[in-house]
Each structure stands twice: as C-alpha cells, then as structure tokens.
C-alpha cells in the first residue's frame, strides 16, 4: 500500500489537468496583472515601466476614492442589513413554524435567478416613467415621492444596493438555518425548562453557537461586496457622474473603454488584495469572539 500511495507518476497524472488550468488561468494572469499595473500601456504601443505611479495616481484621484467609499458602504450594508435580516428569518423559520419548507424554498428563489435577469428586472422597476416603483407610489397617492431613482445622484446608491441585498438574503439565511438546525436541541429544551423565552434563547444560545456560520457568512458578504460588478454594471455602469462607481466597474471602464491597461490592472490588484486582507481580518475578529 505504501508503494501505491507514493506513486509519483500517478500523482502527476491526476494533478496535471487541475494544475494546468489553475496556473494558466489564475496564477499567470495575476502575475501579468501585477506587472501591467506597474506600466503605462494602452495595448497598442509598447509598455513603459513606471513603477508605482498608477497606484499613486489612483489613490490621489477622487474617482477611485469615491468608488472605495461606495464599496465599503456596500459591505457595511451587507453586514448591517443583509445578515441581520437573514438571521431573523433563519431563527423564525427554524423555530418549528408552519410552512417552514415553503418559506425556505421561496426565500431562496432570488439566489437562483441570474444577475442579468435581476438587473434588467430592476431597471424596469426603477424606470422613471413606466416603472413599477413609481407606478405603485402613484397608485397609493404618493406620486410626489416618484423619482428617477437610478438617474438621481443622491439616491442611485441606495437604489442599486436594494436588489444586491435582496438577492442574497436567502443564501445567508440558508446557511444560518442549517447552522441552527445542527445545534443540539437538548440545549434549547433545557433553556426552555429554565424559563427562557424565544428572544433570550436566540441571544444567549442560538447566536453564540452560530458564530462559525456567521463568520462564513460575514466573509462571503464582505468579499462579495468588494467583488460586486454585475448588478452595478447592468443598472448604472457606475454613473451618473461616478455616483454608484465601485472599483470593479471602474476597472472595467479604465480597461475596455479608455484602454488604460496599466491603471485598470492596478485596480484589479487592489481588489485582490482587499478581498484577501478582509477575509483574514474577519477571521481574526471572529477568533476573538469564539470561546
């Protein structure tokens, strides 16, 4: 058996396809991006090595700073609104309520929808003249509150965040629900006998025991917010006047509309780094909370 496990030839054969895929599509491109980010390049003329100038230029510019602010705000909303909503639903549903199965299934439907479909659907919901939102507002006599939503610099960010948060509540709820179900029911029974009410059980038992799941959810929510591209690209493309810009949409415009390959690559590297570090930081924070 030892010989079988030490079979180098077999190991190479088994690993080769995965390694080729991984190295050629992920590792080498990241190294390339890192290199491009240090050059000035429009894709046609030769690359000119300029060191960290792209990064300096980016961080001194208003646009990237604004986009980082939006990104952080989105992450904050994901953690502060999406996760609590998911947690409340998960606790309510897992507490032996009628229609448990149905709620679970339906709450998860938005996760199954393609982001493009959601984007196009919400474009129509927000449409200033024929959209659902303004239509409902005027039906209930609030036509004064009708708005151009995605065209309004002050409201566009909130308008974009709503579908983003809406889509993934079900996903986090599913993970939390599974976590709650795996808590030993005897503990909860014991608390009930001791006279604890539902709220106390949730705060003192369910949530503390759910910490590992909450950690996973927080990492998903935060890195998901940092990576988010599709919905913003579809709904606004980052506009109007960069009001809903996030780093990924900025990267996309820099590369494919302005041919600023160097600057775009610098943003790509920034996104990788911030996803990485945030995951590590969240792990650290949760470690301190877990007993």
């Amino acid at each position: 058996m030892d010989k079988v496990r030490h079979n180098k030839g077999a190991a190479i054969i088994l690993l080769l396809p995965a390694i080729i895929l991984f190295v050629s599509i992920i590792i080498i491109p990241i190294i390339c991006s890192g290199y491009y980010s240090l050059t000035e390049w429009d894709g046609i003329r030769d690359k000119v090595f300029i060191g960290f100038s792209n990064y300096r230029e980016l961080f001194e510019g208003e646009v990237l700073r604004g986009s980082i602010k939006n990104m952080l705000l989105l992450a904050l909303c994901a953690v502060g609104i999406q996760l609590p909503l998911a947690l409340v639903f998960a606790i309510l549903i897992s507490g032996g309520i009628k229609g448990e199965k149905m709620y679970m299934t339906v709450f998860f439907i938005p996760v199954m929808l393609s982001t493009v479909v959601i984007g196009q659907l919400w474009l129509k919901i927000y449409n200033p003249s024929h959209g659902l939102l303004n239509g409902i507002l005027s039906m209930i006599g609030l036509e004064n509150y009708a708005d151009s939503w995605l065209g309004n610099q002050g409201k566009v960010l909130a308008a974009v965040f709503v579908p983003m948060i809406w889509q993934y509540v079900g996903y986090h709820m599913l993970l939390m629900y599974a976590g709650i179900k795996s808590i030993n029911s005897e503990i909860i029974e014991a608390a009930k006998i001791d006279g604890a009410n539902g709220f106390q059980i949730a705060c003192r038992i369910t949530i503390p025991m759910l910490m590992p799941v909450l950690e996973v959810c927080t990492i998903f929510a935060v890195t998901g917010a940092f990576k988010s591209f599709d919905l913003i690209y579809i709904l606004t493309g980052g506009g109007p006047a960069h009001a809903s810009e996030v780093p990924s949409t900025l990267m996309f415009t820099e590369i494919f509309q302005k041919n600023h390959y160097g600057v775009g690559s610098a943003i790509a590297i920034f996104i990788i780094l911030i996803c990485f570090t945030s995951a590590i930081i969240i792990k650290r924070i949760f470690k301190r909370w877990e007993v």
């Binding site: 599509i25 390339c32 991006s33 890195t223 775009g264 996104i271 990788i272 996803c275």
Partner: peptide, 20 residues
C-alpha cells in the same frame, strides 16, 4: 494554493486572459 483560489476574484484574470 487551491484554497487560496477561493478568495481570488474573477477580475484578476480578466485583462490578461483577454489578451492571451
């Protein structure tokens, strides 16, 4: 290495893969 791949956003590869 493969676990780290989980946190790598797809953006990272966009331009280089496009150029290739």
């Amino acid at each position: 290495l493969f676990v780290l791949g989980l946190t790598i956003p797809i953006h990272a590869a966009l331009l280089p893969v496009f150029l290739i």
